[in-house]
Design a protein around this nucleic acid. Sequence first.
RNA 1: CGGGGAGUAGCGCAGCCUGGUAGCGCAUCUGUUUUGGGAACAGAGGGUCGCAGGUUCAAAUCCUGUCUCCCCGACCA
Length: 429
Amino acid sequence: MRFSKYFIPTQKENSSDAKIKSHILMIKSGMIKQEASGIYSWLPVGFRIIQKIIKVIEKFHELAGVNQILMPTIQSAEIWKKSNRYHTYGKEMLRITDRHEKELLYGPTNEEMITLLAKSFIKSYKNLPRYFYHIQSKFRDEIRPRFGVMRAREFLMKDAYSFDLNKKKGEETYLMFFKLYLKIFKELGIKVIPVRAPAGEIGGNLSHEFHMIVESGESEIYIDESLESMDFNNYSIDDVMSIKSYTDEFYNENKITMSLKKFKSIELGHIFLFGDKYSKSFDFFIDAEKGKFLPFMGSYGIGVSRIPAALIEGSDKKDGVIWPVNVSPFRAVILNLDKKSDLVEKFCDNMYSRFIEDGIDIFYDDRDERPGIKFSDADLLGIPFVIIIGKNYLKKKSVTIINKYSDEEIEIPESDAVNKIKKLIKLHD
RNA sequence: CGGGGAGUAGCGCAGCCUGGUAGCGCAUCUGUUUUGGGAACAGAGGGUCGCAGGUUCAAAUCCUGUCUCCCCGACCA
């Protein structure tokens, strides 16, 4: 993408509404625009980052045999009355009435709907297990939205739902998602810690949240620090159930007394195994070899639109961010620092085409702007590799590459530049 | 919902106390000179002061109502 064709409404000054690093930066770098309290539009750069995150999520769900669907955001109140959550969910649920006075709501989650969806198609035990997910806007009417997309009312969420034969199979699925989540967050460049959580409104008795530890986080977790570097690959369901890290709620409710370290954190994922709570509410019986049974269910959420903010909060860079390669809006950026020179222009155009041909998502600052502006915009956007073409190219046919992860600046012959960038991307992949 | 703060040009703010019809910085536009880390000079455009009432000869300014946004708390898959 050429900068000249890309809409990035950056701001020089901080918005007076934004108080935390991620919110300030997201507005400053033209990622988001607020529409109402807790409701945001995603602008090109911001949405591009969201799409990168979605791509990673989709890749891993696909590999695990989880089928992507798309359910509506508007649901009928009726189904929530049936599960008895219409009244218990409270004011956080946005209720709407249509022109026929039919009660509707903007979905805060989709257990009811997916259960009915599955019920209408799945009739035999031979059809299990089935896993579905979708990535969709949710609305929860928070009393006080804050910190930009961190605690928004409308937000993008990935929610998956599983249907299994029985408890044992359900637990295997739960374990699969547990490990799947760790892989996804790893690929997104986020260090998360799984913590035991109470099941809350969803119901059931097995639940974990995935938290990123950061001082500016709104959540509090108590963790066994050995878990920070734990490899969970060989964990069994029993191991997972006995993890000695907890959300503050779980910690308090269960009056846990062991000495654990308390951290501030951001909740990015939440998984539940709730069994037949919803299949029961909707009389979702499936034929077994003999007789029938209620499928064993679980649900698995990731707060997609919260992830960019979390990454910024978690970044070491003061007042800024350097995106992990898989999340970065672009893999690298080419800066043409000498718009006057046809030679430089030609070389930049050429290099840009080569990256494009190789399928590398490259950004090209082809604007007629001063170098300082190009450097600071590249910083603001947090693109990890910056390729500088200007006077060194004219003088000695060399280009400069800045690796933002290591803060290294290297000057290399022009012919090696494309390969060098490819290597750097691969190294950080 | 309780407590606090704020709505004046695209963004950040001053002006309000003490009423006289709006100003600064950044951004934008034009021109010239600049150009390896947010350039300099010269000129220009842009605001029914959140909205609605009221007081007054006169309201951004005083009064009343209302809407919106932010912060702290309670709330929260």
